[in-house]
Every structure is written in C-alpha cells, then in structure tokens.
C-alpha cells in the first residue's frame, strides 16, 4: 500500500483524509506544514521543493509503514508538495487515525519528524531581496555561486 506520495498540485485535505476512515478509529490527528514568509531572519517570497521522486516515494512509504507497526494506529498517510509554492501554501500534510488520541498524536509527530529527516526532498527559498538558496541540514543555504 502506498501511504506516502508526492504531489505537484495543491492538496485537498478533505479527499486525503478519507483514506484514514476506519470504524474502530475514535481519533484523528493531522499536521499541516505551511510556507511561511520568513526564515532565519530573512523575508521569504516563495519556495521551490525538489525531490528525488523514486527514492522519496519508497523512503516515505517505509516511514509510514514503520509508524503503523510502531504505534497503535489504524492508518497513516502523508502527502508532500513539489514544485513552486507561495506563502501560505500547504507544503506537507500528515494524517493518522487511531482508536485513541495518544497514539494518533504520537504517530503524527513521529512521522513528520522522520519525513523531514529522511525523505530526499529539498527546499529552495527565494528571498525578498532577490537571492535564493537551497537549504541543507544545518538549515543554512549553500552558496552555489562561487
């Protein structure tokens, strides 16, 4: 089952969360990551997300399968945008259904942390001053112009 996917079009959460429906589930927890207008003290105008699609899909799926095995949840899904996004756009959505809220919250938090740490997706911030830079692990842009 493919629990993780990349999307090059805007996400419709109402559609996505139907995959979590389960008669035994009494709780649903979700996380939405939005594009904000600042980072590290700089004004951000927009973002580009790039992914190594084949590996992002398999690694993302592995994370969600691990979450379902690790936490007492009924279903878990994640969708991550790629392409050019504007301020306020939804960049990533995680949804989890579970019998009880503790597992739903815990799994949701674990999934977004693992996705950020492991899935081959990169963010290019375009700043208001016209500069741009890819963000790499310590969260600082890498200067590719020199």
């Amino acid at each position: 089952m493919m629990r993780f996917r990349l999307s090059d079009t805007p996400l419709d959460i109402g559609t996505e969360r139907r995959a979590l429906d389960h008669a035994a589930a009494g709780a649903y927890a979700s996380f939405e990551g939005w594009v904000r207008d600042h980072n590290e003290g700089r004004a951000v105008q927009r973002l580009d997300y790039q992914a190594y699609a084949a590996l992002a899909a398999s690694e993302g799926d592995a994370i969600l399968d691990e979450a379902v095995a690790r936490f007492a949840v009924r279903e878990a899904r994640c969708v991550h945008r790629v392409g050019s996004l504007a301020i306020g756009d939804l960049a990533v959505w995680v949804g989890v259904s579970a019998d009880h809220r503790d597992a739903a919250f815990s799994a949701c938090r674990w999934i977004i942390d693992e996705v950020k740490r492991r899935v081959p997706i990169w963010k290019n911030e375009h700043y208001l001053d016209g500069e741009s830079g890819w963000l790499h692990p310590d969260n600082t842009p890498v200067d590719t112009t020199t």
Binding site: G33, Y49, A51, Y52, L55, A56, H80, A91, V92, I112, V115, K116, R117, R118, V119, P120, I121, W122, K123, W134, L135, H136, P137, D138, N139, V142
Partner: peptide
C-alpha cells in the same frame, strides 16, 4: 548513482 545532500523537506 545519486549523491544526496542533506534534505530539507517539510
């Protein structure tokens, strides 16, 4: 072969 720089999704 793909060399992957540190990721920054999310």
């Amino acid at each position: 072969v793909v060399f992957l720089p540190p990721v920054s999704g999310g």
